[in-house]
Design a protein around this nucleic acid. Structure first.
Length: 266
DNA sequence: ATGGTCGAGTATCGA
């Protein structure tokens, strides 16, 4: 296989979104898929349905909130739900990690933070620090690493529809952006932004007040790639079509194609 | 107009 298509999508309930996800998989044919906010129990995850579409799958969820998954048709090994030892284990099912076709892949749903200075905000910053340690322990920036998901952080002012409207809010505060920066210092690259330095495209729009149609969005869903993958990126896309129509998630998927050889699975 | 809409589940809470 000459290229790998990586996708990430916060689906906001797998159960509600399942038929849309299946159509989307058949149409876009991503090789590795990171899903967030599945809001489903491990026992209810439809492994068989994804298998019928050619995907191995792994899920880490508690049934009501959060929940993350990885689908792969280029191999799915060494699956780990939560943070690796000796880190404190992920108590609210926000991260799952696996090896897919020679790459270390994590699907992450970073805590929202709610309001700047709240205990949820502190938890968010600590969670990202833990994510960095998780990556340090499990991988190296010199190997293929992809950390994909809903980071609940807009990396820069061009990633929100109106910076003034977000003054003092979470998702744009300097400590959150600095936390994202520590992942970049480790060796991860914001793939979409690398390819499109100036494009004002968003991945999340609130359901309320027609925000999607009024283009009031934020780019908070990121594909973060280590250099060996980022240097081979050939294509990137925010799939706005997936935010349209009946029963959409409030997030759009992000795709990245990487010219990266993986063994074709048997 | 100072809210709006979703999805969890079934009263509110979280985003």
């Amino acid at each position: 296989m000459a290229a790998v298509r990586i996708a990430t999508w916060n689906v906001n309930s797998l159960k509600v979104r399942l038929s849309r996800i299946e159509e989307w998989l058949a149409l876009a044919r991503p090789d590795v898929v990171c899903l967030q906010e599945t809001k489903i129990a491990d026992s209810a995850f439809p492994h068989l349905g994804f298998s019928a579409l050619g995907y191995e799958s792994a899920h880490h969820g508690d049934g009501r909130w959060n929940g993350v998954a990885i689908l792969s048709r280029v191999g799915l090994d060494d699956v780990l739900g939560g943070f690796c030892a000796p880190l404190e284990r992920d108590p609210d099912t926000r991260i799952i990690t696996a090896r897919c076709g020679g790459a270390l892949v994590s699907s992450v749903y970073v805590p929202n933070g709610r309001s700047v200075g709240s205990e949820h905000y502190t938890y968010k910053l600590e969670w990202i620090a833990k994510l960095r340690r998780h990556l340090e322990i499990l991988g190296s920036p010199d190997e293929p690493v992809a950390v994909c998901g809903d980071f609940n952080i807009a990396p820069d002012d061009i990633d929100v529809w109106d910076p003034a409207a977000f003054a003092g809010s979470t998702h744009v505060s300097q400590p959150e952006r600095d936390a994202l920066r520590t992942l970049e210092e480790w060796g991860l690259v914001d793939a979409f932004r690398q390819r499109y330095p100036d494009d004002r495209l968003y991945t999340y729009w609130d359901y309320r007040a027609g925000d999607f149609h009024e283009h009031r969005g934020m780019r908070i869903d990121l594909v973060m790639l280590s250099k060996p993958l980022a240097d081979r990126m050939t294509w990137a896309l925010v799939d706005r079509n997936a935010r349209k129509g009946k029963l959409p998630s409030d997030h759009a998927p992000v795709f990245v194609d990487v010219d990266f050889d993986v063994p074709v699975p048997a």
